[in-house]
């Protein structure tokens, strides 16, 4: 019996689920090729084209496109609104998650289901729905149309589920024995919340806040109706880009788009790092 050595690629590490089969690699190669092609043709190349177009007239032009009065106003409004929305969601989202997990009342399951509505509802419909209560025909007389607060309400609507849904599972898994131990040591409810529960929620809250922010700065449909898209006043970045596209200023549109993309990517990269850090903490 001769000793056959395998002339094969270096051995695969026994990853948790990696199958070490040689014949599976052909299928994998094909699948990977197709998947990468799909991803490239649909997502990567088009996004690359945006960045490419943004600087096609040079960096000077890029900067001009971004910092001219209208674009700058739109970007400023968008980023500030995004931050504001993230902060509000941190508070309200955590509160709602708390009530959903720790409280018991009739109809709670219904309330839990309703939270996902902004995920399922088209943004244009969301805008219309909000106008019903906060627009010119508001039954309670609050008219936020053409106002920045209108934009804020629209953004709060579409970002509602984010913090709630990231915090909820963590709260559910939280070992209540920790709180019981703290109580037995004399801590008040508020202290328990502040020093035992909240620290365990920070990564989830932060992740939810970051997702809210990324979503808010990208928002288009829900702001279109309620804000009236007044430049320098209620026009958000996405609407500004839309206008530039309609006016055939594709370079300018691409420039502002690139800024939005970079900001959103940085934020999402932060979430990833955060989650990695949270996992290491245990």
């Amino acid at each position: 019996m001769s000793d056959l050595s395998l002339t094969e690629a270096p051995p695969e590490t026994a990853g948790p689920q990696a199958s070490g089969l040689r014949h599976g690699r052909v299928g994998m190669g094909l699948g990977l090729g197709l998947a990468t092609a799909y991803l490239s043709l649909l997502v990567l190349i088009p996004l690359g084209a945006v960045v490419w177009r943004a600087r096609s007239d040079g960096w000077g032009e890029f900067w001009e496109d971004v910092t001219n009065r209208e674009s700058w106003a739109a970007l400023k409004l968008t980023l500030v609104a995004g931050l504001l929305v993230a902060v509000i969601n941190v508070v309200m989202g955590t509160l709602i998650a708390w009530v959903l997990v720790r409280d018991k009342f009739f109809g709670k399951r219904l309330v839990d289901a309703v939270i996902d509505l902004p995920f399922a509802l088209p943004t244009i419909v969301a805008g219309l729905v909000l106008l019903a209560l906060y627009g010119p025909e508001s039954p309670i007389g609050i008219d936020l149309a053409y106002k920045q607060s209108g934009v804020l309400v629209a953004l709060l609507f579409v970002t509602l589920p984010f913090v709630v849904r990231t915090v909820q599972p963590v709260l559910e898994e939280l070992d209540q024995e920790m709180e019981q131990a703290a109580a037995s040591l004399g801590a008040s409810n508020f202290t328990i919340f502040r020093r035992i529960i909240l620290p365990n929620l920070y990564p989830a809250i932060a992740a939810g806040a970051a997702l809210s922010f990324a979503r808010a700065i990208s928002e288009f449909g829900s702001t279109v109706l309620i804000s009236g898209n007044l430049p320098f006043k209620t026009e958000v970045a996405a609407v500004s880009i839309y206008g530039q596209i309609q006016s055939d200023n594709t370079n300018a549109a691409a420039a502002v788009s690139t800024v939005l993309l970079v900001v959103a990517l940085v934020v999402l990269a932060l979430i990833d790092l955060l989650q990695r850090w949270a996992v290491r903490r245990g």
Binding site: L47, V50, R53, A264
Partner: peptide
Amino acid sequence: ALIDLPLAVSPVVVGLALILVY
């Protein structure tokens, strides 16, 4: 990570991106 990329992109930018290539 790239699969999550669409989550970070504003819908209007999606449209722009596709127009620029196709």
